[in-house]
Amino acid sequence: MKTINIHEAKTHLSRLVEQAVDGEPFIIAKAGRPLVKVTRVEAPSRPQRLGFMAGQISVPKDFDRMGEAEITQLFGNGA
């Protein structure tokens, strides 16, 4: 793995990032002392998606009023 000084990394960051994405990680050093290792991030195997339970569950029409009697009993009617 190659080590690059911080000044060179700033100058050529776009090219270095592309190389890391292509599987060539590198180390950024300052005054010869390694600071960070740059590698590509592995994407999740399957992206999360909205609506994945469509057709498998149902929400009752009175969902926003469920437990209303119990809540009123506990906290009053708000008046």
Rank of each mutant, 00 (worst) to 15 (best):
A69T: 12
L16I: 03
E18S: 11
S58Y: 03
V41P: 00
V17P: 01
T3Q: 12
E70M: 02
P25A: 10
V41H: 12
K61G: 06
G51L: 09
G55Q: 05
N5S: 05
S58Q: 13
M66E: 12
A9G: 02
G32S: 04
M66Y: 14
A79T: 14
E68N: 04
I71R: 15
A54W: 08
T3W: 03
G76T: 12
A20G: 00
G55W: 10
V38K: 00
A69F: 06
T39F: 05
R46Q: 09
A9T: 00
K37E: 01
I57D: 02
E70A: 08
L13P: 01
E70G: 05
P60F: 07
A9N: 00
T3I: 03
V59L: 15
P44Y: 05
E24P: 00
A69L: 06
A69N: 02
K61F: 03
R40I: 04
E70V: 05
E8W: 03
N77L: 08
T39V: 08
E18L: 14
V41T: 13
R15A: 14
I27F: 00
A29G: 08
K2C: 01
M66H: 12
L50H: 00
Q19T: 04
I71F: 05
L13I: 08
T39G: 05
N5K: 13
K61S: 13
T11V: 07
E68T: 07
F75E: 02
Q19H: 13
F52Q: 14
D22C: 07
D62Y: 06
G67L: 12
P47K: 11
F52C: 07
G51W: 04
L74D: 10
V21L: 13
T39W: 02
L13F: 14
R46C: 01
L74S: 11
I71Q: 11
M66K: 14
E8A: 05
E42L: 09
S14H: 05
V36N: 07
H12N: 14
E68H: 08
V36H: 05
A29Q: 13
V36I: 15
D62I: 03
P25L: 04
M53Q: 10
H7W: 09
E70S: 02
A31R: 15
I28Q: 00
A9C: 04
T11G: 06
V36M: 07
V17L: 14
Q73S: 13
Q56L: 10
I27H: 00
D62V: 07
F75K: 10
F63D: 13
G51K: 08
N77C: 04
G32N: 04
H12P: 01
I4L: 06
T11Q: 13
T39Q: 12
P47F: 01
E18K: 09
M66I: 10
G67V: 03
A9K: 01
T3Y: 01
R49F: 11
Q56M: 10
